[in-house]
Structures are given as structure tokens and as C-alpha cells.
């Protein structure tokens, strides 16, 4: 079973397509991890103090719903790419990468497929923090997929630069 990480980004979409090419016909889980507000707040200076007038449960319900529609989109893409895909939504508990690795362990995934960057992709960040953390700690094959735009610009750079020759 292949575990495909999906966050709706261009890299994630490319990851699904490449997964289809690599593992066509195989069972796949499309995973979207969402962040409960407690974790967002825990990182802020306000700590876990609830924001006045905001019901944390409502915010979490909305985030979870968002994750569910995202994973549905990813699952449809995966099926179109020829995978026997099923959706899974998971709340992160310590970090997104940890959630991914835990799901991979629990499901005994044979491989994890992930985009190289995600949504928080500052264009200067060539490799996202989640994919980096997943590779560092995974004990199974990880397929890191760049988006088509990034891939072709990297391939193109090489051809125009010309002078990169090493003795």
C-alpha cells in the first residue's frame, strides 16, 4: 500500500501523478493532515488561552471539514491516475511529518509519496520542511516529487547554463 501525502499544492498534485506512474493499479491511501487549533495556539505567545469569542471546537470542525474536501480532491486525482485510492484525514499531534510517519507505520506502507514543497512554499524554499523531516525519519522508501514547473526549470537551467563542466 502506497501512502500519498496531499495538501492541494502543485507539488502534491504532481506527486499523485508520479505515484500513478510508479505504482499504477496498487492500493493507495491519500492522506491529508490537518492542524488542530490547539497546536497553532501552542506556538503563539498566548499559549493555550482560547481566543475570546472563538469556539475552538468550531474552528477545529471547520479545519477538519476543509481537510476532508481536500483529501476527496486528492483521492479523485489518484483514482484518475490509476491507483486504487482511499482517503484518510488525520489530525497532527506533534507535527505534520510525524502524523505522516505514524500513518505509514500503522498501515505498513511500502512507500511514502510526497511533494518536495507544499503550500507554505516560499518560492525560495526548494525543499519543504515536511518532506525534509519525512525523509530524515522514514524507514521506508520516500518518493519526493517536484512540481512540473520546478522540474522543468531545473532541467532548463542546465541546458542554458552550458558551462557546467567538471574535470
Amino acid at each position: 500500500m502506497i501512502l500519498i501525502c496531499y495538501d492541494g499544492s502543485a507539488d502534491a498534485k504532481a506527486a499523485i501523478e508520479r505515484a500513478g506512474e510508479l505504482f499504477g493499479g496498487e492500493p493507495a491511501t491519500v492522506l491529508t493532515v490537518w492542524q488542530p487549533i490547539a497546536f497553532v495556539l501552542a506556538r503563539s505567545s498566548a499559549g493555550l488561552i482560547p481566543i475570546a469569542g472563538v469556539d475552538m471546537e468550531d474552528v477545529d470542525a471547520a479545519c477538519r471539514e476543509e481537510a476532508e474536501s481536500l483529501v476527496a480532491e486528492g483521492t479523485e486525482l489518484a483514482r484518475a491516475a490509476g491507483l486504487d485510492a482511499h482517503p484518510l484525514v488525520r489530525a497532527q499531534d506533534t507535527s505534520t511529518s510525524e502524523a505522516i510517519l505514524n500513518v505509514a507505520d500503522e498501515a505498513r506502507a511500502s512507500a511514502i509519496v510526497i511533494g518536495s514543497r507544499g503550500l507554505t512554499g516560499l518560492k525560495s524554499l526548494l525543499l519543504g520542511s515536511v518532506s525534509h523531516a519525512v525523509i530524515q525519519h522514514a524507514d521506508r522508501t520516500v518518493v519526493v516529487v517536484p512540481s512540473p514547473g520546478v522540474a522543468s526549470s531545473r532541467a532548463g537551467l542546465r541546458e542554458t547554463a552550458g558551462g557546467r563542466r567538471h574535470k
Binding site: L126, H132, Q136, R140, V144, P146, R154, R158
Partner: peptide, 24 residues
């Protein structure tokens, strides 16, 4: 190190998917 420098750099430069195979 958990991740070698070549593999790490390669992920910034690769024009295609990279399959990273783990080593204990």
C-alpha cells in the same frame, strides 16, 4: 547525520522525482 549531504542537496536540484531509500 540522518540524511547525507548529497541526497539532501539533490532534492533541491533534481529535475524529476527522487526515490530516497532508507538505511538504518
Amino acid at each position: 547525520l540522518l540524511l547525507g549531504s548529497v541526497t539532501q542537496r539533490l532534492l533541491h536540484l533534481a529535475p524529476c522525482p527522487v526515490l530516497v531509500v532508507p538505511t538504518r
